[in-house]
Nucleic acid binder design. Structure first.
Lengths: 343, 343
DNA sequence: TTGTAGGCGTTATCAT
DNA sequence: ATGATAACGCCTACAA
């Protein structure tokens, strides 16, 4: 009872050939009803399950998708859940690897998944990655690959991403509408696409409103809370300090908030603050932080769907680009209207 | 160039037999140095990689560990990283499935992983699970299984967990030392082991300090922020309200904090608050929340190590139980000493 | 309608 | 030191 039953066992037990069993199981048209029933009954009884390894070996596909992500923070783990959901439904299993934002780790993960003979990849590249040769190996094997979230022009592949420019735009315009005049931006590393796009949105918004872009108000720093804290301290010690800060992630917004509080400034009165991602934490802190939401779960689903299309499609789809729209959630940190009405 | 090379290709190309190639590759002792070198060189050139499916099929093991977790929140994702770390080093690949705290989903995941022919399981059971038949199938297949974090007496298997009783104990004693007299506890669902253990620790601490346990101060509610919010509101509207609350998770602590603030009470003066897990969020809110930390990453590593031991060990290890110790991080929400010195 | 045989990529057991 | 062969579990021409 402890080793799984095989078609061979069934065949022997029923005194028929293996191929007949095989046919019956996959109910081929040309098999006698009686034998089919007999096979079905027995396979049921023995809890027969086809051996995936044998199948994969034979069919040369594992029905597995390799997913590589830089980390599993709130946003990405939601995206992965979206991917998982769609993949499962389509009969695929998902293998998730974290690169921990490390280039080396990303290479190792790619290699491991390639060795695991996944049928294709859904990838979000690490912030450290500047060389893309390891991904080219995927193409060389003719495996489908979809990039999502952190996309890059260096990779020719169908992609799914947020309209980060619009995200930067609506965040900045919101601050302008609230009457803020000197809006600073805490951007991420200079080579990171999402960061640059959000910053471009910020610049576009300013231009649209005929406001001169002041490069002193543009700050690049690492993608985390600590750096944002120190960067904000610098910003706040300028002779003409900004009266609002837009950070391109919520983690950075938290860092900025700590620096603002330490300086003794109040939000939204003295200074406005807007983050990005709309993670749960922004509504837990005081004041709650306005943030740009991206439809992460949905984005993951779209990525998986696109992958499956790509897989079933013979023609090249590298040019396909799905772009989802962000949405602003206004909260206390930047809302002068509401706050004035509060007790 | 697009299909991976096989030993067959190498053999043909070198005009030697497949088995010789196989031996050379795994550098068996009885193979001519020259041929070995030739094989090595060519396999290098062709980027030969053994086909894992074929290997697995042959050896009847996939070198894959199935991991089932109720969710991927902060604590569990750290644990999974710990598992991953050790597993990788030992040559295993990890397949992670989330049950989303759902019994049905847990069954499906078990089934899928079983079908994927994983070599064994590392499991943390969902809060909804009361029937364990699906896990018994694992045993029936003679596959090793380690349970971690959310363990249960219903499952006979080696286990790794936090000393939750001690966690409840140190949290409660800390509150007592800070001078709090009427300490309430927000516990989780009644059937959840971790919850009961932490509560037992709470009770033990009270008993140790000769304080009568008041069942009115023991509140069971769902494991999340919202329920904790409402439960706290109820607690605070008692005629003799508690002067401290110990919640068995940080999420619940946040809920409690919101209710406390809404009621206009101040922490730590009017009321003390201690959470559990030491998630990053507890140091971001105001006031920061005292919390019991569990060594999650370490716990994951221990679980994986135990798994590998179990796998390589013929004798039954079901009785083995590894217990890690918690540590209290004192913060503003319960620290009357420090806070009195603050401006 | 059913059975035979070959193959997916690998290793292990025999021979040679 | 090397080769032929069977086997892992399954599928699919092809033959019967």
């Amino acid at each position: 009872m402890n080793k799984p039953a095989t078609i061979k066992d069934i065949a022997k037990s029923l005194n028929i050939s293996i191929s007949t069993v095989s046919r019956a199981l996959r109910n081929a048209p040309d098999v006698n009803v009686e034998t089919k029933n007999a096979v079905m009954a027995l396979s049921e009884k023995l809890h027969y399950q086809p051996n995936k390894l044998a199948l994969s070996l034979r069919q040369k596909q594992t029905h597995t998708i390799g997913v590589i992500v830089p980390n599993l923070d709130y946003v990405l783990s939601m995206m992965v859940r979206g991917i998982d959901e769609v993949a499962l439904e389509a009969g695929y299993t998902v293998m998730v690897c974290q690169s921990n934002e490390s280039f080396g780790r990303e290479i190792v993960n790619t290699k491991r998944l390639l060795e695991s003979l996944v049928d294709g990849f859904i990838v979000s590249v690490s912030s450290e990655t500047k060389n893309f040769d390891h991904f080219k190996k995927i193409k060389e094997r003719d495996l489908p690959m979809v990039v999502f979230d952190r996309i890059t022009p260096h990779l020719q592949a169908p992609s799914v991403r947020l309209d980060n420019e619009e995200g930067g735009m609506i965040a900045t315009e919101h601050l302008l509408e609230q009457g803020y005049k000197r809006i600073a931006i805490l951007a991420g590393p200079e080579n990171l696409g999402v960061s640059n796009s959000r910053m471009q949105g910020y610049i576009n918004a300013l231009k649209k409103h005929k406001i001169k872009v002041d490069t002193d108000l543009i700050f690049h720093c690492d993608f985390n809370q600590e750096y944002a804290y120190f960067a904000t301290q610098e910003l706040l010690s300028m002779k003409k300090r900004p009266d609002a800060i837009f950070t391109i992630s919520d983690r950075m917004a938290i860092g900025a908030m700590l620096a603002i509080k330490k300086k003794g400034l109040r939000m939204p009165d003295d200074i406005g603050l807007v983050g990005f991602n709309n993670e749960p934490v922004v509504s837990l802190v005081t004041p709650s932080i306005t943030s740009v939401e991206q439809p992460s779960f949905e984005l993951g689903k779209v990525a998986a769907k696109l992958f499956i299309e790509t897989m079933h499609n013979t023609e090249n789809m590298d040019h396909v680009e799905k772009i989802l729209r962000p949405k602003l959630f206004v909260r206390a940190s930047s809302n002068r209207n509401i706050n004035h009405n509060e007790t």
